[in-house]
């Protein structure tokens, strides 16, 4: 079993994993808080892309009944869409929380660099 044929079929999933890794490393390693939040959003969006890709079936349509109920085979699976919506709600609220914390820290220390804030805090203590 080689990776070749799988990769050419699932190249979009591979892209979403690479995006996830980019977002993850940004959230972990960037010093700037705003860049961290951007990383968080890239990471979450990559997961939604992955879910949406897995939920899609070639040749079928979105599960919205237009003219009378058709058979089940006509539609794609609606659950990944629901999961993505829930995930978006969660990610919006944590982004808002992070942004508000960033504003608070910026007003106090006039910098967005987390390490610099830590140094300032240590100075404040002594």
């Amino acid at each position: 079993m080689g990776f070749g044929p799988n990769l050419s079929v699932n190249y979009a999933e591979a892209v979403s994993m690479i995006l996830f890794a980019i977002g993850f490393t940004n959230l972990l390693l960037q010093k700037n808080l705003i860049k961290k939040i951007i990383g968080l959003n890239i990471m979450d969006t990559a997961t939604y892309l992955f879910l949406a890709l897995k939920g899609y079936i070639q040749g079928r349509v979105a599960p919205i009944v237009v003219d009378g109920v058709q058979e089940v085979e006509a539609y794609i699976n609606p659950i990944p869409g629901g999961l993505v919506l829930t995930g978006i709600v969660v990610s919006v609220s944590v982004s808002a929380l992070m942004l508000s914390l960033t504003i608070r820290l910026y007003r106090r220390y006039h910098t967005l660099d987390l390490d610099e804030i830590s140094t300032l805090l240590k100075k404040e203590e002594n």
Binding site: F20, G23, L27, D44, M98, L101, L105, L120, L121
Partner: peptide
């Protein structure tokens, strides 16, 4: 105070990495 904001940001960053995974 400054300490709790910094701690909260650090907590959120680690937690969000965890929940992403």
């Amino acid at each position: 105070n400054g300490h709790t904001f910094e701690a909260a940001v650090r907590y959120m960053i680690m937690s969000l990495l965890g929940s992403g995974l």
